[in-house]
Design a protein around this nucleic acid. Structure first.
Lengths: 234, 234
DNA sequence: CAGTGGTCTAGACCACATG
DNA sequence: ATGTGGTCTAGACCACTGT
């Protein structure tokens, strides 16, 4: 495609393979010809076939094992893959004007449930930050965040009045591991007030736990406005 | 690593690059040396460097543009990536015994909201299937599904008494495009009964729309039992 | 127009899992 | 033991895009 039309690119091969799966020519669980044979069939090198099949395996269509060969996966284990945007970007992408407001920020000893959740030592200190994100004047997200001070000592001097803790952390900590959880929670009186919904309203919630090289850094609970939907194309 | 220890593999390079980002040696927004220079530095070919950097870009750490070069992304656009399991697998992975029960199955004309959502022609026929998935005797998920008959004519003869429509569709339709949505919904009286929760309970919900080569096939609304959490490591 | 990444070739050796 | 995928090399041409 991108090259002269007489060559077969790895993209062409991916396309063709997907079509043969779609059409039923290569049924689920069936074995594909090996790379050598496909290379001959497609008039290209094994390297090119390899890249095409490797990517299709990464994308969840094929399973490859040395000696065993390449199979079409029976239950297409499609992988949802979506980027986690910064709140600001999300609001602006919807055409809103992003506004941030700090609710509270205080250092304290980690409560028991948090120590357990993050595997902290007893009595470790954390910074507890609560804040709101708005789209224009409409509540968009309430953020309830705990930051482990020992893991990010600079947080003691941080000022979250004008900038949210997430943007601050992103700039301060270059690289992290994340556990992401989605759930539906119920708006209690406090949350209902912040998000301007009736008490008891179902609230789409995500929880993110972040580690820096094995050390727990932060737990963030993000409560979205009523009716929020998180969508992705696969 | 996998080869003789005197060679540099693309995995070694990925590792090294990530470490340099972590350590701050290569700051966000900064430009990496070009592939040729890195190849010399790592004592390998440009091909190998290329694969390492290409994968890191796929994973959201780098941005690459011809002529412009390779940059460290400032806001790590980390991508959550999780597989969508079949209900049966999910229940069994939790150590439960999967049980299925059909609630209702009937052909009808698509209601207006569904026609709009799936871009159907007015008056197109659909199969409406409702069913329950249990873990042992505990409700696990309530499924409310609509299948476009014109897209899957065989559905008229399908029997969903013993097998759920999802497993049937997976076997019948080899390959699809999917739009996936997560949200929090509220248990109405009917749903509360099926899931054995109080009315008004927040319910984690996913909606899946599936197309086969541009044609809408099915819309499934999946309501999970109270307290359900969907988790993924990034 | 010139520099950077994108891709392909031809060949090689190796790791691994199955029979 | 052997067949399969996994990876690397050395070199080439090309596509894109910023200057």
């Amino acid at each position: 495609m991108t090259r002269h039309s007489d060559t077969t690119s790895y993209k062409d091969i991916k396309q063709t393979v997907l079509e043969r799966i779609r059409s039923g020519e290569w049924r689920p669980d069936s074995l594909l010809p090996n790379e050598q044979e496909l290379a001959i069939a497609f008039s290209c090198t094994r390297t090119t076939v390899n890249r095409a099949l490797r990517e299709l395996a990464d994308e969840g269509f094929l399973e490859r094992r040395r000696k065993a060969g390449t199979r079409v996966l029976s239950a297409p284990q499609r992988q949802a893959r979506f980027t986690i945007p910064l709140v600001r970007d999300e609001v602006e992408a919807m055409g809103g004007t992003y506004r941030y407001a700090l609710v509270s920020s205080e250092a304290c000893t980690a409560p028991d449930w948090l120590s357990a959740r993050l595997a902290l030592r007893a009595g470790q200190d954390v910074m507890h930050v609560r804040c709101m994100h708005y789209s224009g004047n409409t509540p968009f997200q309430y953020e309830d965040r705990w930051i482990v001070i020992e893991s990010v000592p600079q947080v003691s001097q941080a000022d979250f009045t004008g900038t949210g803790p997430n943007e601050w952390l992103v700039e301060t900590i270059p690289f992290t591991n994340v556990e992401l959880t989605f759930l539906a929670s119920r708006a209690d009186a406090s949350l209902a007030g912040f998000l301007d919904v009736p008490e008891g309203e179902p609230i789409f919630t995500t929880e993110r736990i972040t580690w820096l090289q094995g050390q727990p850094v932060t737990l963030a609970k993000l409560y979205f406005a009523a009716g929020y939907r998180m969508t992705t194309q696969i």
